[in-house]
Design a protein around this nucleic acid. Structure first.
Lengths: 259, 259
DNA sequence: CGAGAAATTGAGGCCAATCAAGAAGTGTGG
DNA sequence: CCACACTTCTTGATTGGCCTCAATTTCTCG
């Protein structure tokens, strides 16, 4: 768990794509000025997501719904630097439940704070929009997979996606081992499979010498080779920033607002 | 096919959510000032989507990829008022193919034009962002479905989604019959099923008295009841606009730009 | 009217779900 | 440090639904 109070997971992530100006950085840091801490495997009884959003500073969080047939479906897993609630931004109310998968630190901020960004920084707005479009492309990749592909392929793709998302924050160029604080049951509910199938798939991937998984630690033995085999598209490294507006901040009232 | 040159499908759609000012309307109309027409069932050899986006003014379009195993996967179907290419906005290049499902009219505009919107109208930017987030929520609904649900349920949900999307443009309060210019093969490729399964599912839905499908015309006999049965979430009617910035247009250079 | 595309219907095989039981891992209090 | 309860993971046998292959009928449009 991150201990540095001044650390901003959003700034780290956004800085990956564009060089943030001081003003832009302030706008982002403004969203992470408060902190909440929670233990692992607890349900978050957050206020309605129509009022607040939550930046994940550290730890893993997931959102799910209970279906009428008794099954549970995990809709999305949130990693550090991602914003819980953004997906429901357009909705007036959300009926998803939220749980922590590990010890977490999150920063709540009111939806209204997004207005600051949209009103004052066209460039940040554009990046925020582009990141969301990228996440949409990833969702489409998942839909591309899910259509009756063999379970082993689905799981392998899922692991590759986690790998790609985590690598943004890793400074290790040979990044192939990471912790996944998820039970196989949660993974199953994410992918629309059963824990039995997930278990079998992992054994097979292991005996095929592709991915080993034990005690919540995953190792992809040859990430590049596996990506090629599965035609996996690593979306996270490529955002087209060529058409972005300049970084000038609109309106002179800005400085006073964030002060 | 829409014949009125001044008709803007974007304005119609956006006006559903907020009352557009004159300036905002001009910004949107600016995206639809050119027109291209294509016949049904043709492949669109458009310029790379990294440069241009396309507003669908009339007709249906779909994008797909050919998978290595010989299967085809339809990634998304575009209806009037939707923008082809927005999903790849963040990508530097896109390798999806595009086909028309019916006779279509589309309006190309350069990606740079989006910058105008982001730079000059925070309120439109926010709406554009919210609509994209709504589409993301819909994608998640599809993922929620696709996890090993019975084929009949998947198909029924798909039909309900089309119904909800089309209703935005229909002024019929008792909207239950509409044309779907898609073959069962295309539907199958959209949902990750086979044409055989789609056919069987439609027969069953028909004999259950829920949905009838013949000659590309769908009738949902009791939309509200079916929505309830399937716990279908109609996302399209509810966008939370409460936190939107005011409609003022930034920068005095705006009027000259769109003149 | 005729040819090609699309939809229907049927038989057989395969993969993941389900059900079930046992093993391994995790956390707690004595 | 161990004992105990609980969760998670593994392994096996059976079942069911969708895919595949294939033949026929219906639709569409020049």
């Amino acid at each position: 768990v991150q201990e540095d109070k001044n650390f901003s997971s959003l700034v780290e992530r956004f800085n990956y794509y564009i060089d943030l100006t001081q003003d832009e950085e302030s706008l982002l840091r403004n969203l992470e000025k408060n902190e909440l801490r929670f233990k692992s495997r607890v349900k978050l009884h957050l206020q309605n997501f129509s009022d607040n959003l939550y930046v994940v500073k550290a730890g893993w969080i997931y959102r799910y719904v209970d279906l009428h047939n008794g099954q549970r479906k995990v809709l999305r897993i949130y990693l550090p630097g991602e914003i819980v609630g953004m997906d429901d931004l357009a909705l007036k109310a959300s009926f998803n439940d939220t749980m922590t998968a590990s010890d977490v630190v999150i920063s709540p901020f009111p939806k209204k704070s997004l207005e600051d960004i949209f009103s004052h920084s066209p460039r940040l707005s554009t990046l925020l929009f582009s990141i969301s479009m990228m996440e949409k492309a990833i969702l489409m990749d998942r839909i591309k997979m899910s259509g009756r592909s063999p379970a082993v392929t689905i799981i392998a793709n899922f692991i590759l996606e986690l790998h790609a998302r985590l690598r943004l924050h890793s400074h290790d160029s040979d990044f192939k081992t990471f912790e996944v604080p998820l039970t196989q049951g949660i993974i199953a509910d994410t992918l629309g499979l059963t824990n039995v199938t997930v278990s079998n798939a992992f054994s097979q991937l292991d005996s095929d010498g592709k991915i080993s998984y034990s005690r919540n630690t995953v190792t992809i033995h040859n990430p590049e080779k596996l990506k090629q085999e599965l035609a996996f598209n690593d979306r996270h490294f490529q955002i087209d920033t060529s058409w972005f507006p300049p970084s000038k901040i609109n309106s002179s009232s800005f400085q006073t607002q964030i002060a």
